[in-house]
């Protein structure tokens, strides 16, 4: 057990680290999207706009946090934290390498699923308390979306857990340890689970084509339409933190975590894999239109859910038959 002081230092290090990752992924998204669309993206602040996210963050911090008339003040003010903190808490169990990790929980992936569901409440609070019909519709959509995509997500994780025989994220990664034989990664043994997990992940962090709770062209900004300043920044940050944490979980579960051909150090492998996944998400965003609420539901319940269940059954059978 670490002493209180060093625990604090670890937490601080994580916070600074995540902020850097957050700013980096924001910059990366803007640049990637821009280049997909014949644009350059931010170019003025720093080399190729490297400082743009920092400038944006500064702007957010100094902006007025307006509280519109008629909102439920307590809910309205706490909602951004309820959304942000769980997304950040997930960071605690992500094993960046065998040694670099904040906590080594035995029920790591269970903790992740549990903590992630908390933010749903935050979305609902934000949408409900804003006293705005667009945000109300947005939060209605977000709850439906989160609830229906957590199930296939959990079931796809279950298949991996069954194979690894542990809930500990560290051990799951170690079960995929490899040198050159990257076919030990679970993505090759569980391709269906990976696809389901990746789609559900996309829906959980509300990105195109599943960005219905925000749906700029329909609901203006959805559940955060009335937020400004730092509170808005928290909601935005929660989205990017969620983007990073969930793709890291995906890396750990399916892409062998920090393991890779021994030409690069483990940490580099980890970030390479994670940012490749993030890049795929940006790519999707640049390509696809948004689905409709009922289409989203039918995809979740009629396609992903049965597929995940079948996948669990098949995995069980294969384990029973000692194929895996």
């Amino acid at each position: 057990m670490l002493s209180l002081g060093s625990q604090f230092l670890v937490a601080l290090g994580m916070l600074i680290g995540i902020l850097i990752i957050l700013l980096a992924s924001m910059w990366l998204e803007r640049k990637a999207l821009a280049h997909f669309q014949f644009r350059l993206g931010p170019m003025r602040t720093g080399y190729h706009g490297l400082l743009q996210p920092i400038a944006d963050a500064m702007k957010m911090v100094v902006k007025e946090m307006s509280v519109p008339e008629g909102v439920d003040v307590i809910l309205y003010k706490t909602a951004p934290f309820i959304v942000f903190i769980p997304a950040f808490m997930v960071m605690a169990v992500i094993p960046f390498t065998a040694t670099i990790k904040a906590a080594d929980l035995n029920m790591g992936i269970f903790y992740v699923m549990a903590v992630l569901s908390i933010s749903t409440i935050g979305y609902m609070m934000a949408g409900w308390s804003s006293h705005n019909k667009y945000s109300l519709l947005g939060c209605m959509r977000s709850i439906g979306q989160f609830v229906s995509y957590e199930l296939p997500m959990g079931l796809s994780v279950l298949a991996v857990v069954m194979m690894a025989g542990t809930l500990n994220l560290n051990s799951i990664a170690q079960a995929q340890s490899c040198n050159w034989n990257i076919f030990r990664w679970y993505i090759f043994k569980q391709p269906l689970a990976f696809i389901i997990f990746f789609i559900a992940l996309n829906a959980e962090i509300c990105r195109v084509p599943f960005d219905l709770p925000e749906a700029e062209s329909e609901l203006v900004a959805g559940f955060h339409v009335e937020y400004s300043g730092m509170r808005f920044a928290l909601l935005l940050m929660a989205e990017y933190v969620g983007l990073f944490t969930l793709t890291s979980i995906c890396t750990t579960l399916f892409l062998g975590g920090w393991y890779g051909p021994p030409v690069l150090p483990g940490l580099v492998w980890f970030f390479l894999k994670t940012f490749s996944l993030i890049f795929i998400l940006f790519w999707t965003r640049a390509t696809l239109p948004r689905v409709r609420a009922d289409q989203l539901m039918s995809l979740g319940w009629k396609v992903l859910m049965p597929a995940a269940l079948i996948n669990v059954v098949i995995t069980g059978l294969l384990i029973m038959l000692k194929v895996y």
Binding site: Q37, F38, V208, S217, R285
Partner: peptide
């Protein structure tokens, strides 16, 4: 495209 949530067609 923009209204359907796809940003890229607009720039194309």
């Amino acid at each position: 495209g923009m209204d359907l949530g796809a940003l890229t067609p607009f720039f194309y």
